[in-house]
């Protein structure tokens, strides 16, 4: 069942992105920024100790954790968990705590690609 919801929820988030392109006429950069900020705000809503985005991930698995919205949510996660453990300064130190894997991987792999291949057009 989680496969089904991963497909549906992931697809639906991408559909929202497409609507930003075609209806709101936003550029890709604006669209992604909007989605990331949305993800961050949704994650900031915590009910009964679990954030709304976590509930979505528990429900849809990769359908919620693969779209760029989860990047925003992960940034907030890092900030809030360090806020809990280290106090106010945690908001700054914790932001990249959770997302570091994604950014580092994309950065390192891209660097390798740039050294190895030429653009194809």
């Amino acid at each position: 069942m989680i496969f089904f919801w991963a497909f549906v929820v992931g697809g639906a988030i991408c559909l929202c992105g497409q609507l930003c392109y075609d209806v709101l006429r936003l550029s890709p950069a604006h669209t992604m920024t909007l989605l990331v900020v949305t993800g961050a705000l949704v994650d900031g809503i915590i009910i009964d100790g679990t954030s709304m985005y976590d509930r979505l991930i528990a429900f849809a698995g990769a359908g919620a954790s693969v779209p760029i919205t989860s990047f925003g949510s992960a940034l907030v996660h890092g900030a809030l968990s360090e806020l809990n453990t280290h106090g106010a300064i945690g908001v700054l130190t914790g932001i990249f705590e959770v997302t570091s894997a994604g950014i580092s991987a994309a950065l390192i792999f891209s660097l390798c690609a740039a050294l190895l291949v030429k653009p194809k057009a």
Partner: peptide
């Protein structure tokens, strides 16, 4: 695919990799 391939984290990686590969000609 439009936003379908841009919104997932793969699109984020594509934006990094494409820029890195494209601007290789201006130095590392």
């Amino acid at each position: 695919a439009g936003a379908g391939s841009a919104v997932p984290v793969t699109g984020f990686a594509n934006s990094l990799a494409s820029a890195a590969i494209e601007h290789r000609s201006e130095g590392i």
